[in-house]
Write a protein that binds this DNA or RNA. Structure first.
Lengths: 123, 123
DNA sequence: GTTACTGCTATACTATAGTATACCCACATA
DNA sequence: TATGTGGGTATACTATAGTATAGCAGTAAC
């Protein structure tokens, strides 16, 4: 179904793109963080509180990763004490359809798995 | 942009669905394996040869995972010696749009990242 | 002066993913 | 008898992701 149109090198290229995407959104926290930002949580502690069980260490690391991938912008305000604002970039917005597809498929898959677990003592 | 329509528990539910999806397709090999099956590679050694650098150990483990998630069907034929056929299930087909979105976004993201790396000595 | 909040970092650990290498059985071929 | 193929498993390792806990600097509130 894919191979009909693609040569092997082309196919490898597509696989690389999929890998690239997964590498960026992979892990337990990245999508949660992006969504938290979309919800309007912009301060470090706000995000930390919004996402259950995340540690400061992970949040810090993941924010840096996301910034590096240009999905998050970090702005430091020269207040006393300094306040730091994290915002999702326009580029992060382009992830929306991906997340939607993942969400849809996650729900579909859950139903599929549960469906088989039912009807155990039918026959 | 998401929060406007969703209460916190609803949002958590959606996050769970995304997590479920990522848990299934996550890792270096699963999508590659599914695509190899779509391409018509059905025998263990065929798949192993089709996917560069995968080891028998990983292939074996990943095929079991995928079977457990009902994305792959394993059929043993009573030949001498036994031959084993792996096929993608119809349920695996439902992953197609997800993979497409990941591919599209992977390409978009690559362009985005490269775009910034250019123009270093413009000004 | 003590407590608490913000925005982190450091250290040490566990758990999971992935790699490398060798090996197994049953059969076929030379 | 040796070598190769199909379909794997066993053992041991490394690397990365994630957890747990503590602490620090600056400020502010009581």
């Amino acid at each position: 179904m894919i191979s009909e149109k693609l040569s092997a090198p082309e196919c490898t290229k597509h696989l690389m793109a999929v890998r690239d995407a997964l590498d960026v959104i992979n892990g337990k926290w990245k999508i949660q963080i992006i969504i938290a930002l979309w919800e309007g949580n912009t301060r470090f502690k706000d995000i930390e509180r919004r996402i259950p069980k995340i540690t400061a260490r992970m949040l810090s690391k993941e924010l840096k990763d996301l910034e590096c991938h240009q999905l998050v912008k970090r702005t430091v305000y020269d207040t006393l004490p300094v306040s730091v604002e994290y915002t999702a970039t326009p580029h992060a917005q382009t992830l929306y359809p991906v997340i939607e597809e993942l969400k849809k498929w996650g729900n579909l898959h859950r139903k599929k798995i549960l469906e088989k677990q039912q009807v155990p003592e039918l026959a």
